[in-house]
């Protein structure tokens, strides 16, 4: 099948790329554009390691076709920091030792960012729901939940 052109914004930069009609956004971002932050954990939409934001909404990169992303804005963990300044979620993940192997971390961060962007002051239950689709095999989730809650608090304090 003929490859198709697609243009979207990736972490603030306009990118144009030719893709197979069946190509996933995860494949395009990783192998096509060289941003290896989102991970392939299952390819089935059950682990969340490929979570990216499409126009601010969390999406599973492994189940999203690249051709459906024409003209959209894509965010990955690579674009989370503002230059050398870490996003509060990144800082909180470090502070709380919320990663061990680190493989789920980029997806976990993006799921958390989507939550905080729409709900700056989430409850613990809301945090749990926001990351319920993201598998972590190392941490037991507790430090991740605490980090997200702490990041929300810190952002709230900064706004106040």
């Amino acid at each position: 099948m003929a490859r198709m052109p697609v243009q979207f914004r990736l972490n603030g930069t306009d990118r144009a790329v030719f893709v197979e009609p069946v190509e996933t956004l995860l494949g395009t971002i990783r192998r096509g554009l060289g941003d290896f932050a989102p991970k392939f954990g299952c390819g089935q939409g059950t682990c969340g390691a490929c979570t990216v934001l499409v126009d601010g909404e969390p999406r599973l990169g492994c189940l999203t076709l690249s051709v459906t992303c024409e003209g959209r804005s894509i965010e990955t963990a690579s674009g989370l920091a503002d230059g050398p300044t870490l996003h509060p979620l990144q800082a909180a993940f470090m502070e709380h030792f919320a990663a061990q192997c680190g493989f789920c971390t980029p997806g976990m961060l993006m799921a958390a960012k989507a939550l905080l962007d729409r709900n700056p002051d989430p409850t613990r239950v809301e945090v749990v729901e926001a990351i319920a689709g993201n598998i972590c095999r190392c941490t037991g989730y507790e430090p991740i939940i605490n980090a997200i809650l702490a990041a929300a608090q810190q952002r709230g304090a900064r706004r106040a």
Partner: peptide, 21 residues
């Protein structure tokens, strides 16, 4: 002490075996 690999993890820069073009 902070882990040597933590900054790489949170910035998505940690390279696993599949993260090589």
């Amino acid at each position: 002490e902070q882990r040597q690999d933590m900054l790489g993890h949170v910035t998505g820069r940690t390279r696993f075996f599949d993260d090589h073009g």
